[in-house]
């Protein structure tokens, strides 16, 4: 009996031991994700001596603690099984994949961001005054409504009278769509960093003076000496951003070394050429003098004929005041005298 009771006691103790685990620091639990974090330090000695056994025991204990926590939760019985409802998870799991990169902005989006332009939502339906009904923003009903409304089109004053305005409207729309598609592709190419070939000089109506300058600069370099001896206009500017098209433009040559005296003489030559180009008679200066001498002359004249002008002005004033009175010379004189007296 003694033996039996001993064995029972021991097994009971074992069972007790297997359920309760003692830790210095409590574990941190997140039951929603079935997670327990053990912050206690490892026993380094036993870890070194028998690693596997130690780790096995440690994890068994921790799992035991986690299960103990789960058993504390309210249980339900569904279809003869015990079920625990886990609380919502607190722990934020790091994502397995890298965060997706933000979509590269299109050229318009970049511009809008820079200027602070915000997209405003348009109403899906708008009231049409002419047709007296609600017209959708797009779709077949919109097209039908437009067809109904634009049964006649005005010919603009600047347009060719024989031009078909309906056809023009149609082609304009097609062109708009094509342009949008081109811009879309351009945006994609820019986002993926693909080089698109230059368009070149397309059409005189479309191309700008910049395009012309580019083509001139590139064409000039198409000689055996890479355009070194080609003539230039006096104030002509080189096109920029064409280095890849102009051979030898990236090479920078250092000027040959000369003695300082030589350099000074050369500089003096340049100065002479600069100074000699200044016109001896400055036309603008002469013009300004001419223009400003006129008011001076006039003012001199005015001062000479001062009494006359003075009298005239007086007369005018009188006229303004009394337009009804027919003034003759005698009256004038009388008035003039009066004016002086007043002073």
């Amino acid at each position: 009996m003694d033996v039996v009771s001993n064995i029972v006691e021991k097994s009971l103790r074992d069972a007790e031991k297997s359920i309760t685990v003692h830790k210095h620091l409590d574990l941190q639990y997140d039951l929603g994700t079935l997670l327990a974090v053990d912050t206690n330090s490892l026993d380094l000695k036993s870890l070194r001596d028998n690693r596997n056994e130690y780790l096995l025991n440690l994890s068994r204990d921790n799992v035991q603690l986690l299960l103990n926590k789960i058993w504390e939760l309210p249980t339900q019985q569904i279809d003869e099984t015990l079920v625990v409802k886990l609380p919502p998870a607190k722990f934020v799991l790091p994502r397995a994949r890298p965060v997706p990169k933000p979509k590269p902005l299109t050229k318009w989006e970049q511009f809008a961001k820079l200027k602070g332009i915000k997209k405003t939502k348009k109403a899906k339906l708008s009231w049409d005054e002419q047709l007296n009904k609600w017209v959708p923003l797009y779709g077949y009903k919109r097209a039908a409504a437009e067809r109904e409304r634009d049964w006649v089109l005005e010919v603009p004053a600047t347009a060719d009278p024989m031009e078909d305005q309906f056809l023009r409207k149609k082609t304009g729309r097609v062109e708009k769509v094509a342009k949008n598609e081109l811009q879309r592709l351009r945006n994609i190419a820019k986002a993926r960093n693909i080089k698109i070939p230059r368009v070149g000089v397309t059409h005189p109506d479309v191309s700008s003076s910049k395009d012309l300058q580019t083509s001139i600069t590139v064409a000039r370099s198409a000689t055996a000496s890479l355009g070194k001896f080609q003539d230039k206009l006096p104030k002509e500017k080189e096109a920029r951003g064409v280095n890849e098209l102009v051979p030898g433009s990236n090479r920078k040559r250092k000027l040959p070394a000369v003695s300082n005296e030589q350099e000074r003489d050369h500089n003096l030559q340049i100065i002479d050429s600069v100074l000699s180009k200044r016109p001896k008679i400055n036309i603008e200066k002469a013009m300004a003098r001419q223009i400003h001498s006129k008011p001076v002359e006039q003012s001199e004249e005015n001062s000479r004929s001062k009494p006359n002008t003075h009298g005239k002005r007086k007369n005018l004033k009188q006229k303004g005041k009394k337009p009804a009175s027919n003034n003759n010379k005698v009256q004038k004189k009388g008035k003039k005298g009066g004016g002086r007296k007043r002073r």
Binding site: N260, R264, R278
Partner: peptide, 24 residues
């Protein structure tokens, strides 16, 4: 030199022809 001559005219020469030595 064009820019400098706008301010000091033909005196630009004096900046280079200096009695106290060579300047560049």
């Amino acid at each position: 030199f064009q820019k400098l001559s706008q301010y000091i005219g033909s005196n630009v020469k004096l900046l280079i022809e200096r009695p106290d030595g060579l300047y560049c």
